[in-house]
Design a protein around this nucleic acid. Sequence first.
DNA 1: TTTTCTAACTAACAATTGTTAGTTTTATCC
DNA 2: GGATAAAACTAACAATTGTTAGTTAGAAAA
Lengths: 164, 164
Amino acid sequence: MRDIAQEVGMEAASLYNHIKSKQELFRELLLNMAHLFTKGMEEINDSSYTPIIKLEKLISMHVKFAVEYTDSISLITNEWVHLEGQAYDQFLELRDTYEKKFENIIKNCIEQGYFSPVNTEIALFSILSTLRWLYSWYSRNKNMNPVELEKEFIHCLLDGLKKK
Amino acid sequence: MRDIAQEVGMEAASLYNHIKSKQELFRELLLNMAHLFTKGMEEINDSSYTPIIKLEKLISMHVKFAVEYTDSISLITNEWVHLEGQAYDQFLELRDTYEKKFENIIKNCIEQGYFSPVNTEIALFSILSTLRWLYSWYSRNKNMNPVELEKEFIHCLLDGLKKK
DNA sequence: TTTTCTAACTAACAATTGTTAGTTTTATCC
DNA sequence: GGATAAAACTAACAATTGTTAGTTAGAAAA
């Protein structure tokens, strides 16, 4: 809290005029970010695009967030375990439904003949790991061009799954 | 330290008969794990296998470590930033040369016509992210069969890169 | 048995942590 | 200009942290 206070130019105690506790601040940051992902997923999932285009739009969203909210993404990726009480449960539920929807889109790609039949759980895991760690590679390598990045990802993550 | 002491059945102060400091213990755990990876990489890289087989062996190593040393892998993946002084520098150097060698093997795959020409930096990043996060999916899903896992990974991570 | 050494113990330290109580400053509105 | 509210401040608290000093138990060596 003293570090945060210094960063915004006040004493640690003064922060408590604006927040109720450190946990509240942390929870707010994390759940806001989680809801951003949830909202993005819903918009994409409810659209009428083909499942492949949906995947491309999801990848695009992850790249955008990694570049735009690098710090928050670092938080949500690494520190969510420190959420307490019902915030922890709520986060896990948001994450779970996000992943389920993501996997369903992959399943649709297979059903509709775009992808060859693969283990969707592993495909999901592979894609999500890459997207979730993107922020850390991006902060090591700020000269990566986001647009280029997005294009390469769509190629690299999806083309391998496509039917020949 | 009190938690660790309880886990091994003694008082926190007694730990200091065995270690010099918390940092030393932490450093020991982390750098040992880092050297395991380095050693594995060297053995594979110095072998006379084709670059594709080398990649398969690397994947196999990551899967094995994720299953065998789940906790240490969690440490090395998430907590390395808390290394101090020269241990920090040493870790970064080990990681850097590991990644460079990994990328070189991918480049060899392209040069020797196994892979279609891709951005090797992004391919490396994608593969490594997946392998590094494997431990966390494995601890969520202990019923994953390591042998099956390895096979699926080799398929999922490499086949997408191969020439048709 | 006596000595020695290892590894546990108790008690306490200093530093750091999130937080609260009470006070003063700053801006806003009548 | 005086009242009011918001937001900063100082000072301190209680809890937790890594660690040290000094002591004691237990096994091995003499």
